[in-house]
């Protein structure tokens, strides 16, 4: 018999010092309502904490929300740590407020997708499902 409890696991984190968690909590709720297991780590996390938690939790996706403008400092650090932890099979998603040119650059670095403010919840859920499916089993 095959698995019946096969759920997408997502780790959601606020990295850096800003406390704007209105969006990230809505995202967590929508992903849960789509049947996923969402690990929420809370505010003010460092890249090291996020990557180490993601590995222990063996998540499919890391979602990092950031509205402080420090994304070009924080995402490269997360990617570097994921590489060090041999965790590059985990998909990295970003959310928040950032200029379009930064979005392009972050995707080139290896961020799977950036979900900007005002992305409808249904689209966020669909994106996570699609990316996990595209990655395939591991």
């Amino acid at each position: 018999m095959t698995s019946e409890d096969d759920k997408i696991r997502v780790l959601i984190a606020k990295v850096g010092l800003d406390g704007h968690d209105r969006g990230v909590k809505i995202v967590a709720r929508c992903l849960r309502d789509a049947g996923m297991d969402v690990i929420y780590t809370g505010l003010h996390r460092t890249p090291d904490e996020v990557v180490s938690a993601a590995v222990q939790e063996d998540v499919d996706v890391i979602g990092i929300s950031l509205l402080s403008g420090a994304h070009m400092t924080i995402f490269p650090r997360v990617i570097e740590l994921m590489r060090d932890a041999d965790a590059e099979d985990i998909l990295l998603l970003g959310g928040g407020v950032m200029p379009d040119e930064d979005v392009v650059e972050l995707k080139a670095m290896g961020v799977a997708e950036i979900l900007l403010q005002d992305t409808p919840p249904a689209e966020i859920v669909a994106t996570v499902k699609r990316l996990v499916e595209e990655r395939g089993p591991r």
């Binding site: 967590a28 849960r32 297991d37 929420y40």
Partner: peptide
């Protein structure tokens, strides 16, 4: 929905 939000890590941040 069968989904869950697992929030225990919020309080365990110091251990990470």
């Amino acid at each position: 929905t069968g989904g869950a939000i697992l929030g225990d890590r919020i309080r365990m941040g110091d251990l990470v």
